[in-house]
Design a protein around this nucleic acid. Structure first.
Lengths: 214, 214, 214, 214
DNA sequence: GATGAATGAGGTTTCATTCAT
DNA sequence: TATGAATGAAACCTCATTCAT
């Protein structure tokens, strides 16, 4: 194998490892598998990573980085339009667009998705910690968005952390379901579907009006 | 696996294995750990289970069984009250109660929860299949309920499968978050929070009314 | 789990390992080699020993045990015969017999000898510590004997520790030399040779008498 | 090994390697450690030495060279003074001086000492052979000296090879003991102590005179 | 000449599973 | 039926050595 500059090669290994982990799962995947995929000798991997597990950790931290970057980018945005001037559907559209952005960043590809939601789960404490950080970041983005929207009067009073967690969980589950059926994940549909549900809920208008209190 | 020789002992092993798997994770847990916990010799386990993996599978199938039982029990229930006679809050209360029942069955205890959402994830194809079946059953329960409610006019038109998936996912994520923080999971609060969100959504009443079409 | 399961098997493994270590050297010897020699599976060795190194340590500790036992047995012996009644040659004979006993215990067989003086040297701190303890014990035996003889007036004033160390070292070197030439070690000759040297030294009687002081 | 390209650099590497081997032992010492200590790249070492082992061998051969040089220098000396004109103490003093010279050459420094007596022992056949040659040379020096002294009538009849071996072994053991206790080795004391023992032995004058034969 | 990135053979150890008792 | 000693496949990782730059 010809020489490659360090960061390039590291990225190359990471990319191959991601594919291998996604395809075979973390445990079924040998270091040999990864190295074969990357076209390098088995020892070479250990020049770039401390061990097999830390390869996975690097993959996860890469994702975490992406999420955190998005977080900072989105944190700036805050609206000042009064809610009375915004319709439900335009609010939903805006919100869906934001969610889509998030999904794009996290689930950049099916491999990341599969690793994040399947192969990296339940491995060990350190990995679990990174997963937790990713989750925190994801939930954090949604949470901040909810808090801002709440402050601006767009959404009703609620526990933003809990709601954000549910939103993220719901979306992930949809993604997982898609993964399971081997269908490609349609991020657009995912974002819209989820936003509609979480925005206006499921109840029909035909329900009896709430009786006045007092 | 031919016969079950002594169902009691098998159940005992299963219970101990559940605890061990939940505490240490599937891979970190040795067969020895399980057998020690169950107070049996290492060879004895293989009189009751084909191998380590099938112990986990049995645990999962037990849960699957419980969910399916609930499914059948809930499938009978169908309301005939017209939506005009039911307020949002009572609908939510009813719905929350149903969800609570579901949560109770699945997350009977923290150990099951942890295994279902963490330790059993990403292990191998067969395990993944059982997890899929459990998910299907869970989502199915919510889905049926949604379909019934839709048919009765309680909820607006929507994709019941997708919404059910998101509901389940959202709830699971909340549970996972609780798990992560080592807080005991409060099923009541979980059910109410989730139902409120998924019933009426997040948007405020103050939003501008939708302009009439045409 | 700290108790020994089958002391017989452990002894068997130890004996085989001793042969293997002596024949191939510690590093050249695989765990596989040992297990093959012992007729056991590779995993079995790990039921009896924590790792390869601790097999060697056990061999050394066995020898240490033997030396310490001899030490206690010999410590009892103390003569009360006045030196004026004992000739040099009978003192030497007695002393040689004692040394022979020592040699017998330590260099029970060529394998032990080779391991002690060659294969176990310079391996790691822990091994080195056991070797040190064996040395201490060996030197200790000779030292005590010297002290007793000194007290009884058989030997001239000297540093018993230093002399004991040299005696042991001299004997070991002779043994090593024999080992190197693949000749079987003749313990009797070794003991006599060494005792004579260390008892009466090398100088001839023909030397000029020491001039009287004063 | 073909040429030496730059003898200075080679000597530098050798000196560093000696330190590293002495400090960490042959196996614990990486090629990297040596190269770091020498301030060269890992590949460079292989321009000067065939492999790691041959670095050690070179260190040993250097010592062997020193011993052989001494050997030749001392071989010339032969006395013609009749023993009747020399007292025991002056003979001992002379002998001790000679031994001191030997010790100085071999145990030039603690590092050499440690390598010779510890780190290089039991490594492999080739190394063992060099060690054997060094030993032969050392013993040879003492042996020749003994033979000469015997011929001149200074010492009693004895097996010069065996005695020489014991002398060397005894001295080495003392050195090793000093090494083990981290005390600096006092070559003067070592030489005197050893010579006294090996010259006049341990027995007291008070012993009963040997009965006349016949 | 000098470098250090790349290599891969090889050894130790774990642990699920088997099977003689 | 119950056991736990024995097994050996399998996987990780190290590190001396090579070789492209």
């Amino acid at each position: 194998m010809s020489y490659m500059r360090s960061p390039d090669r590291q990225r190359h290994i990471l990319a191959c490892a991601k594919r291998v982990f996604a395809e075979r799962g973390f445990h079924a995947a040998n270091v040999s598998h990864i190295c074969e995929a990357a076209g390098i000798g088995r020892g070479t991997l250990y020049l770039y990573f401390a061990n097999k597990r830390s390869v996975l950790e690097a993959i996860l931290r890469e994702t975490l980085e992406r999420v955190r970057t998005l977080m900072e980018r989105q944190s700036a945005q805050e609206t000042t339009v009064p809610p009375e001037k915004v319709t439900r559907s335009s609010a939903i559209a805006y919100s869906a667009a934001q969610l889509r952005q998030l999904l794009e960043v996290v689930f950049q590809d099916d491999d990341t998705l599969r690793i994040l939601l399947r192969e990296a789960v339940g491995l060990d404490v350190d990995i679990e910690k990174v997963l937790g950080e990713i989750d925190d970041a994801l939930v954090g983005i949604v949470e901040r968005s909810l808090i801002a929207a709440q402050r601006a009067g767009f959404i009703r009073p609620l526990d933003p952390r809990a709601v954000a967690t549910m939103v993220v969980g719901g979306v992930e589950k949809l993604a997982l379901a898609a993964l399971r059926s081997d269908a490609p994940v349609d991020l657009d549909r995912l974002a819209t579907e989820a936003t509609r549900l979480h925005a206006i809920g499921t109840l029909s208008d035909r329900l009896k009006p709430e009786p006045k209190k007092g």
